[in-house]
């Protein structure tokens, strides 16, 4: 099975600033969950971009599913990004499209799957995240809570290999953490992996959080935190 994500000797002046000497080395295997304490939202967003091959790097390689982002042609890289689900801190909803189209747009773009099948999958995911079905109507008609849940549906739709969560509960909705962890457990059981970038003390200080890596991301790179290798939670979603 290929490694999900591998950062080897990565240096990026765009991410860490020209004065920074930070070097990133990180490997994420299938079934793993990395909890990363990234208190600087700009740095967290930059790191998420780096994992998706969107942040320019000066040295090293970023490989996703054993493919080096920098060596891939533009269209192939886009197709590969279709296997990454993201929950973005800035939400990233297209306001001129309704919420259902926003959720379905990536799988419709990257696959030939039937629309009804995708709708069915999205509806099932929506129910798992506590919504009655795929939300309808414009973006503004949804509450912040429901919009957040819709963001999870979008990220987990289409069997992604990697899910990147940028401060997914924003410190405001701690009741969503168990639901999200259950879905991450399903993803891990299916051979996927997840990166959870957090600013929340509530999440970071939770020692029962089932992370296989615990890291701090700062302008000097990663700091590994002790006790990070928890076993994968078999059947945690049950």
């Amino acid at each position: 099975m290929p490694q999900i994500l591998r950062l080897s000797h990565v240096r990026s002046a765009t991410l860490f600033g020209s004065a920074g000497q930070a070097q990133l080395d990180f490997t994420l295997l299938p079934g793993e969950l990395a909890l990363i304490d990234a208190r600087d939202p700009t740095l967290a967003a930059g790191f998420a971009d780096l994992c998706c091959g969107l942040e320019p790097i000066d040295e090293g390689t970023v490989r996703f599913l054993d493919r080096d982002w920098s060596a891939l042609p533009h269209d192939l890289a886009d197709a590969l990004r279709g296997q990454i689900g993201c929950v973005m801190a800035s939400a990233g909803w297209l306001r001129f499209l309704d919420i259902a189209t926003n959720i379905l747009v990536a799988p419709l773009y990257h696959t030939n799957h039937d629309l009804d099948r995708l709708r069915g999958e999205a509806a099932a995911l929506a129910r798992r995240f506590g919504l009655p079905g795929i939300p309808a109507g414009p973006i503004d008609s949804l509450s912040q809570d429901d919009l957040l849940r819709a963001g999870f549906v979008r990220a987990f739709l289409g069997d992604p290999k990697l899910v990147i969560l940028e401060s997914p509960v924003q410190g405001l909705f701690p009741d969503l953490v168990p639901i999200l962890l259950n879905q991450i457990a399903v993803l891990r059981d299916q051979g996927g992996a997840a990166i959870w970038l957090t600013r929340s003390r509530l999440v970071w200080d939770n020692r029962s959080f089932p992370a296989t890596h615990r890291l701090r991301l700062g302008y000097r790179g990663f700091v590994h935190v002790h006790g990070s290798h928890h076993p994968a939670p078999a059947g945690a979603h049950a």
């Binding site: 967003a45 998420a48 971009d49 998706c52 969107l54 533009h74 269209d75 890289a77 886009d78 197709a79 590969l80 990004r81 279709g82 990454i84 993201c86 973005m88 800035s90 939400a91 990233g92 909803w93 297209l94 306001r95 747009v105 990536a106 773009y109 990257h110 990147i164």
Partner: peptide, 13 residues
Amino acid sequence: GRQVRALRMQGLD
């Protein structure tokens, strides 16, 4: 609103 970044992260050109 940084939605262009969101599009690119989803692999949409």
